[in-house]
Design a protein around this nucleic acid. Structure first.
Lengths: 105, 105
DNA sequence: GACATAGTTGCACAACTATGCAAATATTGC
DNA sequence: GCAATATTTGCATAGTTGTGCAACTATGTC
């Protein structure tokens, strides 16, 4: 999977905002997915703000949304996001030894 | 090494801009550290822009700067940045594989 | 000294972003 | 139908950010 520089920058930017990262942490730590009301209270922001942050995270593929009645259930795209972060970590660290360009999971 | 949410968000925000990520990539791929002039040409931006981006990256600990005559030589903090990215990847992915997160919740 | 090179800083500006409020939409339950 | 809950959207606003240019500092060379 070839992630372009721009795509990766957008992903990092999506994660690089305090409230959005807090939302991701919140989704990390609970096993069951959460609805937006629960998430907006964890950041103590308005519901509209949580809605917009979650949309950004969804656009970048960090979370996935499922409609369930009048609620939206959000869940983390754990493996995809973790993989991209590790690929970047490998690229940053790997060139020092210049031997391992492969990213294995 | 406890990285706060805000610190990590700042790091991700520093990496989450196209030109800054390009600078980091450039520093990844050349073994020897580079001076700022070389880096500004890789992004085709003004020298002042490269200077400011490099300062942001230095503030977040992504790069380190060393004065050498009238030049500034920049090098990546490879291990530190890679470690933080992997720690986030682990946190995001970890609870999904339910290794030992139950005890912490 | 004068001049060139490397880099930073001040300024202005345009573009973007996060935020809250109010209104709108959607859905569930009565 | 009506009311309540969950979420999104429009709007205004305040704050931030990326950018280039010009001026500046700092260091090296002649």
């Amino acid at each position: 999977m070839a992630t372009t520089t721009q795509e990766l920058a957008d992903l990092l930017k999506a994660l690089g905002e305090f409230n959005r990262l807090s939302l991701v942490y919140e989704l990390c730590e609970c096993k069951a997915p959460r609805n937006a009301m629960c998430l907006c209270s964890c950041c103590s922001v308005d519901a509209s703000v949580a809605s917009r942050h979650l949309r950004v995270l969804a656009q970048e593929g960090v979370v996935e949304m499922e409609k369930q009645g009048r609620e939206r259930i959000y869940s983390l795209n754990r493996e995809e996001v973790a993989h991209k972060l590790r690929a970047l970590a490998d690229r940053i660290e790997g060139a020092g030894t210049e031997l391992s360009k492969e990213t294995e999971l």
